[in-house]
Write a protein that binds this DNA or RNA. Structure first.
Lengths: 314, 314
DNA sequence: TGAGGGCATAAGCTGAGGTTATGAGCAGCT
DNA sequence: AGCTGCTCATAACCTCAGCTTATGCCCTCA
């Protein structure tokens, strides 16, 4: 019926502004494309994904029709990606990798009890680093069930002390009392501006005083990044806007609202694509802090905890 | 039938090793979650995505059931994400952003003719940078149809000269004859190793001679990165393995096969997550090259080309 | 020339996700 | 108090994308 009459309701509201779902093949199709690229045959790819060959064939075909692009060169001896297909597959790989991180993260959040490895981590680490570590861990030790609790540093420390967590990750300035620790990474805060901002072209480094006197886009008081910033400035920062999520801060900065202070982990992509430009800072401004793994004092972690620790760049 | 008897065929081959599609909500659900986070209400999110409120409600619910996580706090006055939901939404955002890049890229590949802006770009740029630029462009000038042709530098130059492309992006060492150009970014090649590799802990910078005498994981002869490397080494490089895609090179390096040479654009994520470690190089080794926009000599680009150029960090 | 791997087509089934219609909780105004 | 307006949930129904099996054709290689 929707096809008959006059295509009312749904069609009058055209597929909505930013609805990617209808323009991007679903994850299964993207995985299939990658499998074809890797294995050189639709049939083998189908087998790997546990579907029948005709299903794979039709799915690839419909993806090609959908995108309006020839992705696969079929021959009686197998299938290879076209040049276009290679490029599309590279873009697809990014989506699939993000999906893998999503899966690793959400699965760890769910597996609360009965896991062999219980991890507690602060937000920044949980958000940006842990999924990758978990993927690496599951490749090295398949089947290790990991649970994740995300919270602030005090909460992480408490869980590790009480034995509710086997391993913790914190981004505080100091090591929590009574816990052993190892630095696993550094969190370098960047001052970033949109490419159009005056600071983007500036040669002379920005000094601490300037930073302290310039209204900045910041996370709310009490957040980890805010603490590090104020510590480095030796006083309070002047907020232009206070936002409650790193994402909101990035969005405001990209929009040109002003200079923002964020972890390099959070803006790696934006910086690489030049949507944001890091501002040179005076050597006196120390916006670096350690990201540390922590565990109960005395004995080094063993078993899966040790394994995970070794992945995080000892 | 498949449910009766003994759960044969499909169930014996358990959902296949790395099939994410069944474990990760589809793009529509992720977009919906982000919309709920942004708008604070299931109903409003539904409207934005052009679906009914019950559809949104049930979809979020089934996503929560699927993940085994409570994502949304529903109240008679609206819905907000739970803490867990925030974290999950952050992971979801990465997937959606990758999907947006996919969409922007594939759409440009398709819109061959009749576009207002025809771009030709070398692979590295097309793969890593252009999708982001296209997204930014479409935000600033909605509705600008862009077409993309990806090829090597000579091909890009030819298209720009012949008028088949309005704007080109090349990564060659020199500016093609008869074209004006502007540097839009730099492509810094990195030597990367897996965290376990001896070079990962090494303090002393690696010299050009060392690099030249060490077997490296490389792209095939003739590739852009290979050219730059050999230019910098003043001779030929010694390949440990030659691979035909940047992705394959990365995979081999992550697996610990040896040192690899790749663009920083290609490994930003791996480096951030410490799956790969960049090796310090002697100051004498120049592995940087310019990424340039090029256009027909004489007149600066106007219209959409000018707009795109201005996005690429003037 | 027959065997085997690779892809395409055909016909039929299932379920996820969509719709409309309706109910019920809570806030705030009149 | 009660009305209005917003929220979300439930119910019954529909559609189509994507899966399956069965089959055929094409090409290569022994």
């Amino acid at each position: 019926m929707s096809s008959s009459s006059s295509g009312d309701r749904h069609d009058t509201t055209p597929p909505a502004a930013g609805v990617l779902a209808h323009r991007v093949p679903d994850l299964g199709a993207l995985e299939l494309l990658l499998a074809v690229a890797r294995l050189g045959s639709l049939g083998r790819a189908a087998r790997e994904l546990g579907i029948s060959q005709p299903a794979a064939s039709s799915r690839v075909r419909s993806m090609e029709r959908h995108l309006g692009l020839a992705l696969v060169d079929r021959s009686p001896r197998g299938s290879r990606l076209t040049d276009t297909g290679q490029l599309v597959a590279d873009w697809a790989r990014k989506v699939v990798e993000a999906a893998a991180a999503f899966e690793a993260g959400t699965r760890a959040l769910k597996d609360r009890r009965d896991s062999r490895l219980r991890v507690a981590a602060s937000m920044t680490i949980a958000e940006y680093l842990l999924p990758g570590w978990l993927i690496a861990l599951s490749e090295r030790r398949p089947g290790t069930a990991v649970s994740l609790h995300a919270g602030n540093s005090a909460e992480v420390a408490r869980r590790v002390r009480s034995g509710e967590a086997d391993l913790g990750f914190v981004e505080g300035l100091s090591v929590p009392e009574g816990l052993d620790s190892a630095v696993v990474a550094h969190d370098l805060l960047l001052v970033v501006v949109a490419p159009g901002h005056p600071w983007a072209r500036r040669r002379r480094p920005v000094t601490g005083e300037e930073l302290a006197s310039t209204p900045l886009i910041l996370r709310e008081e009490g957040s980890g990044t805010r603490q590090v910033l104020e510590e480095a400035l030796g006083g309070v920062a002047r907020p232009l806007i206070e936002l409650s999520s790193t994402t909101a801060v990035k969005t405001a900065a990209v929009g040109g609202a002003g200079p923002a202070v964020v972890s390099e982990l959070a803006v790696a992509e934006e910086v690489a694509a030049r949507r944001l430009v890091p501002v040179g800072l005076d050597a006196g401004v120390r916006l670096r802090r350690d990201l540390r793994a922590v565990w109960p004092g005395g004995h080094r972690p063993v078993g899966p905890a040790r394994e995970l620790l070794s992945l995080t760049r000892v």
